[in-house]
Design a protein around this nucleic acid. Structure first.
Lengths: 195, 195
DNA sequence: TGTTTGCAAACGAACGTTCATTCGTATTTT
DNA sequence: AAAATACGAATGAACGTTCGTTTGCAAACA
């Protein structure tokens, strides 16, 4: 009966609000007092549920990173060609964005405020993802499905091109396919009419 | 003879170091004490040259925005087709990045820490740029040079795709053409081999 | 009863900025 | 030429505020 709103533990509410604030104002510009206000608690009470501000950022970033990694794994197992893999990877990015724009934006923009040693863990995770992505690109070039451009340049352009979806306020489920297909069309076949 | 190093006024040094710090650590994470250390002054001494931390961010962001706007203007005057205009706009982004990676990164990532009313000025400036960019895209679609995709989607993908060059440490002048041409090739003709 | 949850109060540290003052060097006045 | 004036640059000390976090204790819940 109209139970649309969150049925979340307090702890989950805190993480959710933290992600929203980190996204909207940035990690450094978000104070624990801001967060307390957002969940309706006094600042000190937050520490009954969490251990530090840094922990909040850490969890948000690594949970999101894990989604990318396991999504990548699935794509590599199911895709039967580089073209197909690339389409699925683009769809993966859009899907994750549609499920949680907030977390993915924090993941993208605020990771640099992670402290050591977790920062190194994060960078290692990210590098791993990008290397797997690059393998898809280079394999496509070797098999002749992809034009032989500079792999690093192509990789960077691909990864970069997809990121605008994170800035959108919301993507509902129906839109995922349309947007993913549109981006894939542009990156695979280009803006030019066939020459 | 061998005068390669900076011949800058103190004020210019401050702006330069501020941009570097804002890029590396973020605006909020950069303290005036950090900045003072970087230029070899006491924190209070900074205020003999500048009026506030916010002013530093403001100048960096708006100077950079102005470069995009005047670059756009020149492109629109000289380009003779949407394809040519798009190629030149991509080259514009790479060129600006090659001239000052630091400022452009601050422009891209730190503008949201601008305070009102300058924040609104900034957003207006940005919207203006994007609208002109969109006109190039839609004109290309109307004249049949560009495939008829969703204009907003195409615009966002184009603007997004180009942004990875800002993350590069340095781009020297020779590379500009190669990188701009590579990105343009990918966005105009796609990754796929011709079908 | 014991454990979780919440709060008021307070902590030291860091923040951006202001202030009165000093130092060195030009410029002007004698 | 010497003395008086003006000024930009730099300083240390301190301002009030905000920061993330800790502590001790009460209330609620198991």
């Amino acid at each position: 009966m109209m139970e649309t709103t969150t049925r979340l533990t307090r702890k989950e509410r805190i993480y959710q609000e933290a992600a929203r604030l980190f996204r909207d104002k940035g990690y450094r510009a978000t104070s624990m007092r801001d967060l307390a206000d957002s969940v309706g608690l006094e600042p000190s009470s937050l520490y009954s549920h969490i251990s530090s501000k840094q922990e909040l950022l850490h969890k948000i970033c690594f949970d999101c990173g894990q989604r990318f990694l396991s999504g990548m794994e699935e794509v590599l197992q199911t895709a039967e060609s580089p073209t197909e893999a690339l389409e699925q990877l683009i769809r993966l990015h859009v899907t994750i964005a549609s499920e949680d724009v907030t977390a993915i934006t924090v993941f993208n923009d605020e990771w640099r405020h992670l402290e050591q040693p977790e920062l190194d863990d994060f960078l290692r995770m990210r590098r791993g993802y990008e290397e797997q992505f690059e393998l898809v690109v280079t394999e496509g070039m070797q098999t002749g499905q992809f034009r032989q451009l500079e792999p690093k340049m192509a990789l960077n352009t691909l990864l970069s091109a997809v990121q605008w979806v994170y800035r959108k306020k919301q993507i509902n489920g129906d839109e995922v396919e349309r947007i993913a297909a549109g981006i894939a069309e542009m990156l695979l076949n280009g803006l030019n009419t066939k020459s």
